[in-house]
């Protein structure tokens, strides 16, 4: 949430000018390639950025996506920036930077044997990328990009402590657990994406 707020404050000078800026949409689909304890992995990723072009070369907006990692599906939510070298040309290099929070809202807490609770929590996501755009007609382009996607997530396994008075379990309060295991996972991905951007 803090990241979200910070990003919003950073971009507000562009958005909050009161001037009507042209809307842009950029939807991408691709693979996230990485290596885990079991070897190489390739995971599906989709993301859409909805924002504005605030000068000839720069676009910025809110993004939401869906990344499927082994055993966990993460929904990144955040802000994205795109810088385009030659926006008027049919071919142009561009760079991007996405920053946000990878939410695990799609994952449910599970209850196992002996009352063992297991659940996921999200973490920071950032993704610098470079690529090129090919204009297909006046206002739309195809995009091809390579990037590095850094995604943090946490897996917890906890055995609640005996307290008949506790109304709800707080994952962050160790007093609520007899034992608590936390796996802080950092997914480091090479992202290869194709996309479509239009105004």
């Amino acid at each position: 949430m803090k990241i979200f707020l910070l990003t919003y404050l950073l971009v507000c000078p562009f958005f909050c000018s009161g001037q009507a800026l042209p809307y842009i949409h950029h939807t991408e689909i691709g693979v996230l390639m990485g290596k885990d304890a079991f070897g190489q992995r390739g995971n599906f990723s989709v993301q859409t950025l909805q924002g504005v072009r605030f000068d000839r070369h720069q676009e910025m907006g809110f993004l939401i996506g869906l990344d499927s990692y082994p055993g966990i599906t993460i929904m990144p939510i955040g802000m994205g920036w795109r810088g385009i070298i030659y926006p008027q040309n049919w071919f142009s290099w561009y760079g991007g930077f996405d920053l946000g929070y990878g939410s695990t809202i799609l994952e449910r807490m599970e209850l196992g044997d002996w009352g063992l609770h297991s659940w996921f929590e999200g973490g920071i996501m950032y993704q610098p990328s470079i690529g090129f755009r090919l204009r297909s007609n006046g206002n739309s382009t195809f995009t091809f990009s390579l990037g590095y996607k850094h995604q943090v997530a946490n897996y917890y396994e906890g055995m609640p402590s005996e307290d008949p008075w506790r109304e709800r379990l707080d994952p962050r309060d160790p007093v609520h657990w007899t034992s608590l295991r936390r796996d802080r996972m950092v997914f480091r991905n090479l992202s290869i994406k194709v996309g479509y951007a239009w105004r």
């Binding site: 390639m33 990485g34 290596k35 885990d36 304890a37 470079i130 390579l146 990037g147 590095y148 402590s161 160790p174 007093v175 657990w177 007899t178 034992s179 608590l180 295991r181 936390r182 796996d183 802080r184 996972m185 950092v186 997914f187 480091r188 991905n189 090479l190």
Partner: peptide, 20 residues
């Protein structure tokens, strides 16, 4: 450069155990 550097990146897992 990105292909070479980032494709060799490995995921990291740090496990902490807290016990009462």
């Amino acid at each position: 450069f990105m292909l070479i550097v980032f494709s060799s990146c490995e995921d990291k897992v740090v496990t902490t155990y807290t016990y009462k």
